[in-house]
Design a protein around this nucleic acid. Structure first.
Lengths: 154, 154
DNA sequence: TGTGAAAGATACGAATA
DNA sequence: TATTCGTATCTTTCACA
């Protein structure tokens, strides 16, 4: 992966629908050569996909929170994981080290829905303890901008 | 936002580079009407952008972790936030409720880099306490799939 | 909000260096 | 890996329902 590939990555991180023509102009290659580089980056797994970014607040789910959970020892984790992720508000879950087994990221319509979710977890999903942290604010520059800084050549 | 818009959202979440022609076929509208709907969704802020997804491991940063931090009371948080996000390994940061002020998401080359980062925080960024959780595994179905389930009509 | 048609822009494949 | 070129496909604009 050379400097040109890094520029390409940065541009596609910012605008995933950029045409090969415009992208090519940015890196001073022909559109064909540029498309070929993007194809190679995808084949190599460096680019794992292109996605629309949706605003959860605009979808009626303005309340984001992180729920740390601990599961009952000896239970079937695979099955419980699937159950947790099948909950509508649950966006993602990661298995982490430390006092808690998983951290779930959730997006709720309001605190009532979050309350319901937090209370439902111990009842039906093998969860024996939870800790909920509300997201107050996302730091400016989180996400795409940080990734761009990581991939772009100096 | 009707059912057709929800289908469009789901498709663009899965493949952000889908052509309007193919997207139109999926929702049984003309490409023109489909493009107009996407434009409206973007104008309304429901779609906030399109981005490539990069594999951090393929970029040489296979170690993901969450670092909870507490800042020195009375310090200039705005400035410290900018400092934290300017660190190369830091992908994002959120201000959260509870015992910790922020949770940083970081991607490191190896544990040595993570160690260096965790030790550097108290020295230079107004951080007075940290708690690091390694990401062992992301649950299958985190991310796009969960979002699709949220937007797609039943 | 929707359609269809036509012009201009873009992507793709083949030949080649 | 890159370029150019020809052809196929796609996007966008416009007139109109």
């Amino acid at each position: 992966m050379d400097a040109i590939d890094r520029i390409i990555l940065g541009e596609l991180l910012r605008d995933g629908r950029l045409s090969f023509r415009d992208l090519a102009a940015r890196v001073r290659l022909s559109p064909t050569a540029t498309a070929e580089r993007v194809r190679r980056l995808a084949d190599a797994g460096v680019i794992s996909g292109f996605h629309a970014e949706v605003d959860l607040a605009a979808l009626g789910r303005p309340l984001k929170a992180f729920i740390d959970v601990r599961l009952r020892p000896g239970s079937d984790h695979a099955e419980l994981e699937a159950g947790l992720l099948s909950l509508p508000a649950v966006l993602s879950g990661v298995h982490v080290t430390g006092r808690w087994d998983y951290t779930l990221t959730v997006a709720c319509r309001d605190v009532a829905e979050l309350d319901e979710l937090v209370m439902a977890l111990p009842r039906s999903y093998g969860v024996i303890e939870t800790n909920t942290r509300l997201q107050l604010r996302e730091l400016h520059g989180s996400g795409v901008e940080a990734l761009c800084a990581l991939v772009e050549p100096k």
